[in-house]
Every structure is written in C-alpha cells, then in structure tokens.
Design a protein around this nucleic acid. Sequence first.
RNA 1: GUGGGUAUAGCUCAGUUGGCAGAGCGCCAGGUUGUGGUCCUGGAUGUCGUGGGUUCAAGUCCCAUUACUCACCCCA
Length: 418
Amino acid sequence: MTFQAPKGVSEYAPPRSAAFRRAIDTFAAAVTKAGYGYLELPVFEDTQLYARGVGESTDVVTKEMYTFEDRGGRSVTLRPEFTAGVLRSVLENGLHHGQLPAKVWAVGPAFRYERPQAGRYRQFYQVDLEAIGSDDPLVDAETIAIAWDWYRQLGLQRLTLLLNTLGCAECRPIYRAALQDFLRALDLDEATRARVEINPLRVLDDKRPEVKAQLEGAPLVTDHLCAACKAHHDQVRTALADLSIPWTDNPRLVRGLDYYTRTTFEFDHPLLGAQSAVGGGGRYDGLSESIGGPPLPGIGFGLGLDRTVLAMEAEQVAAAAVSTVDVYAVPLGEEARRRAFALLAELRRAGLAADMAYGSRGLKGSMKAASKSGARFALIIGERDLEAGAVQLKDLETAEQTEVSLASIVDTLKGKLL
RNA sequence: GUGGGUAUAGCUCAGUUGGCAGAGCGCCAGGUUGUGGUCCUGGAUGUCGUGGGUUCAAGUCCCAUUACUCACCCCA
C-alpha cells in the first residue's frame, strides 16, 4: 500500500478497539452520574492559550507543540492537553456564572510532537474532567475517586495512586527559594542547572540515578506548607481514607505543567514499561487568571486512554470481542437472498441485532460465517423453505433446529431474545 | 533532540558456510447435491522495507535511506 498512518499516531481497529470504546463509555456513564456535563471542544486553539496556560517554561510548550499558521495568518496549536481549552470554554460560555463548581468532562485526541515509544504517541487520547470554581478539598477527593473507581470498573487492580501538594502562591515561593539554594550546590548538567532557575520543582522529578542520588536531602514541599495548604492537603487525604482509596504520599511528585497548585496526583501502572503514568491531574488555582479570566480555583485530571488500554491488556482484562449479533441469516439462492435481506431489516427494526451472509457462498460457507459471527441463532432460508412459507431456525449452541413460519419468525425471535 | 534493536505471506515468525521463497495460524474451496464449531484434503497471497554496491549467484555480505520499535529526556 502507498500510504501508512502518520508517525507516532495511535489507532484502534477491531478487536482492540472494543476495550478503547468500553473505556470511554464507562467513563461517560460514571461522570454523568456524578453531575459532570459534556463539553465538545475544538481540537486546536490559539497558540497563546497554551503558551500562557500550560507555561512557557514547560517542555510541552517549548518543544512538543504542533503549531502552525492557518491561511488567515493566525497561529494555532493542536491541543497538547485539555485543561487550558476546557477552562477557556467554561469562561467563554459563562459556565462560571452558574452554580459552582462548574463540572465538565471531555474526551478526544491530544497532540505532542515527541519521539514515539511504548505508550507514548504523537496523537494520543484522553478523557478529561474538570471541576471549576471551588476550592473545597472534597472536590479534590471527588475527582480522584472518580478516576480511581473508573480504573477499577475497567478491571484494573494494580494501579498506584501517588499524591502530593505543591503549595500555593503564599508558601510555594518560600519553598522554591529553599529548593533552589539546595539545588544550586549540586553537580548537575547544563540543562538541569537551567531548570533549577526556571522551574526548580521539576528537578525533583528527575529519574536519572546520578541526579536522584543527589536529591536525597532535598527540602520537601510538605515541610514548607502554609497553614491553609496543610489543612487542605490533610482534608483531601482524610476524604480519600473515608472512601477506602489507598494512596502513596510522594513529596517528589511534581508533574510537568506549570499551572498546578496544591493537590497533584498521578496513577501509575507497573506493567507498562517506561511510560508508566496512565493518568494524572491536580489543582490549578491560578490558571484562570493567567489566561485573562477572573480568579477561579479549579481541579481536574487527564487520563490517558492509550495507556489505560495497554494496562487492561497487560492485566488481561481487555474485553474479548463479544458477539454483536443475535441472529445470522443464511440464504440459499437468489430469491432467498432477497427475502433474507428484507427479513434482516425487519429484525433490526424490531430491535434485534442481525446480520446475514452476503455474497454467494455455499451453505457450508454461510454456516461457518454464522458461527463466526457469534450469533445465537442461524436463520436458514432456502428455496424449499420459501415454498413452504417457512424458515429453519437453528440454535447454534445446542444445534437444535426447528421450522418456523415466515409470518411469525420475527415474533418468535423477539420472544427468545428480548 | 540522543542512543540501541528490528524490517521475509493478512498475522506470528523460520530461512544454516551466499545456491529453486518456507512453516504455523488465518482466509478460501472441497470432503458432505440443504447445515457451523472438530477432523481430513487442496488452494491463493511475497517488488524478502527502499535505493545502490560486491558476486557466476544476495532474503543472507557492504553502504545509504525510510519505517517500525525500545530506552533517555519528558509525559497521557
């Protein structure tokens, strides 16, 4: 073939796509029950929204964005994450003027120009959820619980929830200065030294052994929290404990986006190789103002669907392709094909899932197709049957076959299947 | 952006010191003139990633290139 999918994109064809769909459908049902409304968002935004929202110093903005100029000379960027666009939409649609928090969710692809590897794609999929306009720690706990329960519903047992707090505008600068003092004394490469000056917290996240070793005695946020942040953090943890959700406190958990304040969290899976974070999120109490909105606290998460599917496969809980049809018609001869085709539509209108053997295959081949379709019943329609005004109804599990009149076959099947 | 590995049928992969392009699975057909799953038999599908080079001869050796893949960085 001349064409292949662009480098680094993920795509889902049957039977793998079943797990992908199930993940989305399960999420949609769960968050709808928790009061979240659906947001259908553009897949690209004004480049400045991400530059200012996500943060000029982040890798996402400096080297991973799909940015281009449209024909009108506007700089637009394929979304590298959801939160900035969600907040923009909430503000633009005035949802923050209604009852708070404004609770919304979204799903779809996001884009980052990176070198692909296991679990990391240039076009990847996320479900996203945001609660905007409340600083109640119970809202933090609610979002975490929703993510946790979703993973459990999908059958995932081996996830670890990592939890941290990054402080607020009050206490973070003090901690930041203390951390910088510590980091400047270390033996670090040039890129990391630069990061110490721009965003020292992210140095804590470094996974290289030679750097990790030096970080042993680094000052921790949790020791520099103001009273309000400490109380907030404690209340989040108490709420999680009340829900029997296990977590691991990780004072080194930073996350790569600049807007996070207070609560941050991440879900890690042990079987995914290097890209082990299947989802993550946190609070972003200053984000609204940084994109020109009113002061408006918020919290949310993005959960990676690609990595979730990989985790489901690794834990062997990905849905096996289940039968999608109940009835499979097997016509013999041209006249029978016409009648079967019409009957098929009738069955579907009656609410039954039905398919038939298309093309001119022999009876044996058609029966094989019926068997492979996973249908419970085969409907054999031959010339002899048509003359008798009947069809042969075969139960493909028991191999039991009965003759049913054409006039009553739809009702008969409805009786058996609905 | 940096480093390693791989590329042969629809899929998973074998292919020896360079000597006729292979297996399993899947697909199709037949065994059974109107009956699936099991079984048996047969069949189709290949620019051996691409371009060059060495050689009487290249899937195999050399060079380049592209794609895929894993890891670093970072993140979903």
